[in-house]
Design a protein around this nucleic acid. Sequence first.
DNA 1: AAATATACTGACTAATTAGTAAGTAAGCAA
DNA 2: TTGCTTACTTACTAATTAGTCAGTATATTT
Lengths: 184, 184
Amino acid sequence: MADTTKEKIIDLADHLIRTKGFNAFSYADISAPLAIKNAAVHYHFPTKGDLGISVIERELKNLALHIRKWEKMPEDQQLKKLIDIFQQRSKLGTICLVGSLTPDYDTLPAPMQAKVQEMCTGILQWMTQCLEKGRAQQRLHFEGEAYDRALMVLSNLLSSLLFSRVLGGSTFQRMSKQLAKDLI
Amino acid sequence: MADTTKEKIIDLADHLIRTKGFNAFSYADISAPLAIKNAAVHYHFPTKGDLGISVIERELKNLALHIRKWEKMPEDQQLKKLIDIFQQRSKLGTICLVGSLTPDYDTLPAPMQAKVQEMCTGILQWMTQCLEKGRAQQRLHFEGEAYDRALMVLSNLLSSLLFSRVLGGSTFQRMSKQLAKDLI
DNA sequence: AAATATACTGACTAATTAGTAAGTAAGCAA
DNA sequence: TTGCTTACTTACTAATTAGTCAGTATATTT
């Protein structure tokens, strides 16, 4: 996994954001498990917002890496790959960054708000393209603008993780299957 | 509005949960605007969890009141009424309790987790019935189990509020119109 | 060998947090 | 009028919060 302290901090912060939310974890929640002092966390990330931004940026890079890996696959398969990633999250009981950070949006420091915005528009941009191309090749079927459909799909993926934690594991399966049925 | 202090506290807590989230507001955020001491808030609601539960219970009662009011309307109209409520929220820039509290689920005190669960299952139960009856009368059209569709609809309503705060006001219109188109 | 940068620790701080306990003023009931 | 309840205030506490700053050991560079 992560070998440097900095990467370990990002790893832990990522997990805490996905389980407890940005406002419910503290520097102590990070320093204690890593057996370092809270000042060491501040050394790498002066403010909590800086840490949050790094978590988002890493997620964005990872996502970009996946997307590049899927480039040559047909669009319906690319979408299924994305659903697979969410299924893994569902098994771990962790939610996605969009689902965790957008509810807290008003409380986030301004630079982090900008990053959250960037994350949302970035994911939606990719998904819009994916849906558009998939429809052109008749591998995906839906009505309306591709961007509007992208909003609905991201909505369903995000909520499937929220709901499955509250209502139980089968909820993810129900929603992801319905989502696939509706589009393919 | 609210005339008793207790009702004013619930009102404010409701607003704070919808804007900042349950973990990002404090007793001071409630006592200061009401010009009372924080101990007065503890008098009415011994713990923060008690306050959270009261906020959910009031929402559940309000929702039940609305639903009873819509009883004689055709199901597609009932659904539109619900969308109207979300549109008002969107204008105010506030999110719904499901969208605010499910991301924080793991951090909530156990009795409040139970209430959040109750709220989710309650809303889904009503929506499942509404969709089922609407389909039987051919006023609503969709494939798959009504419960699965209810999950998707709640997902889209909840996310439309999250997204519209981050991406701008037109996002709600896009999503709610697409939602209506897909079902009617 | 000397200077500099990296990655921390130790020891703080000022503010905020949820929550408590004792007291009090006003209204109502017996 | 005495006692009880309601709705608070005053005055706390112990814990936690993000963040700071001066120091230090270890590499790395010059």
